[in-house]
Design a protein around this nucleic acid. Structure first.
Lengths: 186, 186
DNA sequence: CGCTACTTATCTATCGATAAGTAACTCCTT
DNA sequence: AAGGAGTTACTTATCGATAGATAAGTAGCG
């Protein structure tokens, strides 16, 4: 793949994570790379194309990461730590948010093509959490596993959202610790 | 207070809850009321003023609601249900979000004056949840109560965020049911 | 020659914001 | 009671900035 295309995706992702899809601007992305905005349109004709590509790559990266974790042979506790570490890292990186979380907040503004890709990210995460639950909490019914995975995922997203709003990463850590203490997570 | 001013606040709030602070437009607010955008600037000179007023009113309304609940004499369970019902109602109203949640996602874009008001909303909610916890879970230390309140608040915000992203209000209901089942909430 | 990866230049739309004008109403003075 | 001054709540018109998008041109490479 083209070097420029990759740079656009990387810078675009960081912009969305910082300020949302609305704040993603062809001119700003171009300026940061040192090219002109029309060159960005060359790679991604419309903003919907760019947003969709960003969300798609984000979901695929998550997929690879989760697959790698599940094949690591680690304990559920350790895998879960590594997993939440990604969300934590976004906060540590200039108070950024998960691309999904920020796009979910803007959901009504998103072009349909972007929404589809955003939905994929949820699926990837839920499948991962369900796999973890199946291993670590075999006492749960399969219906309970689906619900529990959703509850964990939303708890993580919420912890990140509130921590961002308070500009305080310890909020994230404390919320997750509380979720673990009551047995919601691992 | 002026009738127009109230209409601006109501329509503006609904717009932010639907599409975020970025999508809040003087022209659109004005058009929906049937006045001109300059008239909106008359009441709220800058967008920061409008956003701040929206967040301020939202926090104050939350304050009144929570105070009313605490004085109702109901059980913690019942009060908590009424409390989460507000978040649920936002989703039921055309997939809207809590003003705080959507503004937290856009936090980096917000003018300082808006941020201050947004922070107030968190405080109101945390104080309410801490009061509930103090009553319903007297075994918790006061340090644990603070953490637990944060964990509950973030779990609710997250449930709303994910439910919005999936356009499925049952996601909200299921997540909250799971949080209750593990003993995180009431 | 023709394809890739751009730049230059420009269009239209929308944004927040402001200056200037105006109709309606209140209040004070004579 | 009459009339002017001042205030409130707007409208009209416009500014400059920025947005996404596109047409046309171009440099380099196989």
């Amino acid at each position: 793949m083209s070097d420029t295309r990759d740079k656009i995706l990387e810078i675009g992702r960081r912009m969305v994570q910082s300020n949302g899809y609305n704040a993603l601007s062809f001119r700003e992305v171009a300026a940061e790379i040192g090219i002109k905005s029309a060159a960005v349109h060359y790679h991604f004709p419309t903003k919907g194309d760019l947003g969709g590509a960003l969300a798609n790559k984000y979901a695929q990266d998550a997929q690879s990461f989760c697959d790698g974790l599940l094949q690591s042979g680690d304990t559920a506790e350790k895998m879960f730590r590594a997993y939440t570490g990604v969300f934590r890292a976004a906060l540590a990186d200039n108070n950024r948010m998960c691309l999904y979380g920020i796009m979910a907040a803007e959901y009504d503004d998103l072009p349909p093509g972007v929404r589809v890709e955003v939905d994929k990210f949820t699926e990837v995460n839920l499948h991962f959490l369900e796999a973890l639950l199946k291993r670590a909490k075999p006492e749960l019914t399969s219906a309970d596993i689906g619900t529990r995975a959703l509850a964990i995922f939303s708890a993580i997203e919420g912890a990140q959202l509130v921590a961002r709003g308070r500009k305080d990463i310890t909020v994230f850590d404390n919320a997750l610790a509380a979720h673990q203490a009551v047995g919601l997570t691992f």
